[in-house]
């Protein structure tokens, strides 16, 4: 007669601990929050990089409309001057139709059809690492083409980059805080488990168990709980992020270009449950060994 396979039972019977049943759920929430914070911080990377590139490589020249002075020759003159400036890679006059397209969402097509005076615009792309004095070029332009001025986005883009970096550190801090809270929960659950099993632990000691033998049982137990909770939390986070990415689609691409998760960002999600398990193992071991030191 074949006997049913027996499920492995640990000496400490940690698997039936009612006080620790909350742990996988709590860790699921923690991993979920950490995944969102981490994804946010990582997704900002592309946006910040876009802003940073903008700071270093793009300028816009605006030429105010002046009655009696046709725009096209003034644009050509300004472009000519700009092409002669060392450090400028490309000069591109923005067509009136493109300017109208930019303004249409705000002014409506009716206003644009009338003879609305629009500024002329020139996109300037700088060479990599160009050392260009915006003030000097500005002065040169204004002398030759009155009403022309360089719109230097650097000051406010700089601030945007700073804001982005701040948001990223905030995301990092949230991950850190969530990790600390998770560790605190593991400590709490482990201590509760230890104090509920003092007699058994004393017996194992008397039979010759080393502290590491007892710690390993706790480690295995919390690792399994953290993995279960972590997979649930990371799975929910992944589902939410995919949903957001699908729904958001084009939204935000103007103000926040590059706000998206790259393929390797997605690869970090399945690592989170493993990280949670690692953290739980180290924390449980440290807690058990610390507590057992007080016993004989």
């Amino acid at each position: 007669m074949s006997r049913p396979r027996k499920k492995a039972v640990s000496d400490l019977q940690l698997e039936v601990d009612k006080s620790a049943r909350f742990l996988p759920w709590a860790l699921a929430v923690m991993v979920f929050l950490a995944a969102l914070a981490l994804s946010g911080a990582l997704a900002l990377d592309g946006t910040i990089e876009g802003w940073r590139r903008g700071v270093s490589s793009k300028l816009t020249v605006q030429i105010a409309d002046r009655p009696g002075q046709p725009m096209q020759p003034r644009l050509q003159a300004a472009a000519e001057i700009l092409r002669g400036v060392p450090g400028i890679a490309e000069v591109q006059i923005v067509e009136r139709s493109a300017v109208e397209a930019l303004l249409q969402p705000w002014l409506g097509s009716a206003a644009l059809q009338s003879d609305l005076p629009l500024p002329g615009m020139i996109d300037v792309t700088l060479q990599d690492n160009a050392a260009l004095s915006v003030d000097a070029v500005n002065a040169q332009l204004q002398t030759a083409v009155p009403g022309a001025r360089i719109d230097d986005p650097k000051p406010w883009l700089d601030r945007l980059v700073q804001l982005g970096r701040l948001l990223q550190s905030l995301g990092g801090s949230i991950v850190l805080l969530v990790g600390m809270a998770a560790a605190a929960m593991v400590i709490f659950a482990t201590r509760a488990g230890l104090s509920a099993r003092r007699d058994t632990i004393e017996l194992l000691h008397l039979i010759g168990a080393e502290d590491g033998y007892i710690a390993r049982q706790f480690q295995r137990h919390v690792a399994a709980q953290a993995l279960r909770g972590g997979i649930l939390g990371a799975g929910l986070a992944a589902a939410l992020l995919i949903g957001i990415q699908l729904l958001a689609g084009g939204i935000g691409t103007g103000l926040l270009p590059g706000l998206q998760l790259l393929w390797w960002h997605w690869l970090l999600l399945p690592l989170l449950p493993l990280a949670a398990a690692g953290l739980a193992i180290v924390t449980a071991r440290w807690t058990v060994l610390g507590e057992l030191r007080a016993m004989l």
């Binding site: 039972v9 000496d11 019977q13 058994t200 017996l203 194992l204 039979i207 010759g208 168990a209 033998y213």
Partner: peptide, 17 residues
């Protein structure tokens, strides 16, 4: 240990070692 079988109880010292 109440949750372990007679066999597992007796095996404890050897497993620990």
């Amino acid at each position: 240990l109440d949750h372990l079988s007679a066999l597992d109880n007796v095996a404890l010292p050897l497993r620990i070692a």
